[in-house]
Amino acid sequence: MSLPRANYDPRRVCLNPFPEFTLGKHRRTVGVYLAGALFALANWTFLDAAILSKHAHSPDYDPDWYPPVHVTFVDWIPGICSLLGLLVVNLIDKDRIRGEEGFGDSRAVWRARLFLFIGFALMAGGLAGSVTVLVLKYILKGYEQQYTYYGLANVSQNVALMLSAIVLWIAQSASGEYEYNLTL
C-alpha cells in the first residue's frame, strides 16, 4: 500500500494537483497572448454596448420616442473595479506570495498575500456589481432584449477580465523558455 500523493510534499496546499498543460516551449507566450485577447474582447464587448447606447435613436415613424435606458457611469464602475483587480493581482511578485527566494521578512509575505486578496476581492466585487446592475437596472424593469444587452455586455466584460487575470497569472507562473529548475 502506498502513501497518498499529498503526503509526499509537506508544502502542498491543495489535495489535488493542478493540471499540467504542455504547450511546448512557447507556453508562456501563448498564455500572455491569450490573456491579452481575453482582455481586448472584454473591453470591446462593453464599449460596443456603450456606443450602441449612445447612438440609440428614435425610429423614423415616431420622432417623440426616446430610448428607455442608457449606459451610465453606474455601468462603468464594475468594469473599473475588475480592471483594477486585474492590475493588482498581476503586479504581485509570485515569489513573495510563496515565501521563497529568502526574502527574510515574514511581513512582506503577509503583505503580498493581503494585496493578492484585495485584487481578487476587487474582481469579485466587479463581477457581483455587474450582475447587480444587470438585474436591478435591466431585467427587473422589463426592458426589451436590445436594452438588456447593455447589462449582459457588462457581465461578460467582468467574466472575461477575471479569466484574463487567471490566464495571465498561470502564464507568468510557467517556467520560461530558457529557465531551468535544478533541484538536488
Score class of each variant (00 low, 15 high):
164 S>L: 01
24 G>C: 07
42 A>V: 02
64 D>L: 08
175 S>G: 14
24 G>A: 04
154 N>S: 12
127 L>A: 02
70 H>W: 10
176 G>N: 06
154 N>K: 03
70 H>Q: 07
181 N>H: 10
157 Q>K: 05
9 D>I: 00
100 E>S: 12
115 F>G: 05
120 F>M: 10
152 L>V: 06
33 Y>D: 14
36 G>F: 06
66 Y>K: 13
102 G>N: 11
8 Y>D: 15
76 W>G: 06
183 T>V: 09
131 V>C: 14
77 I>Y: 13
68 P>D: 04
99 G>C: 02
156 S>G: 07
179 E>F: 01
162 M>C: 15
10 P>A: 14
52 L>F: 04
147 Y>W: 13
83 L>C: 09
105 D>I: 01
21 F>L: 07
79 G>I: 00
157 Q>G: 05
99 G>N: 01
88 V>A: 13
86 L>H: 03
126 G>Q: 03
63 P>H: 10
32 V>C: 08
26 H>F: 14
154 N>P: 09
64 D>Y: 11
17 P>H: 05
163 L>N: 08
104 G>F: 00
2 S>G: 13
160 A>G: 03
113 R>S: 08
138 Y>M: 07
4 P>H: 02
162 M>I: 10
121 A>S: 08
152 L>F: 08
11 R>G: 13
98 R>H: 10
68 P>T: 01
43 N>Y: 13
20 E>M: 08
54 K>F: 15
52 L>E: 15
29 T>K: 12
168 L>E: 02
113 R>T: 03
161 L>E: 03
89 V>P: 00
161 L>Y: 00
30 V>W: 15
2 S>L: 09
179 E>M: 02
46 F>G: 02
20 E>F: 10
31 G>R: 01
86 L>D: 08
98 R>L: 10
164 S>F: 00
19 P>M: 07
78 P>C: 03
51 I>D: 14
62 D>W: 13
181 N>A: 12
160 A>C: 07
115 F>I: 03
22 T>V: 08
89 V>E: 03
180 Y>C: 12
86 L>E: 06
77 I>C: 04
43 N>D: 10
182 L>R: 12
127 L>Q: 00
136 L>D: 11
130 S>I: 01
117 F>A: 15
29 T>R: 10
118 I>G: 10
25 K>D: 15
24 G>Y: 03
134 L>I: 01
102 G>Q: 10
99 G>A: 04
28 R>I: 03
158 N>S: 07
33 Y>G: 15
14 C>P: 11
120 F>G: 01
130 S>Q: 07
84 L>H: 06
177 E>S: 12
157 Q>Y: 07
91 L>Q: 14
70 H>A: 06
48 D>P: 13
175 S>T: 09
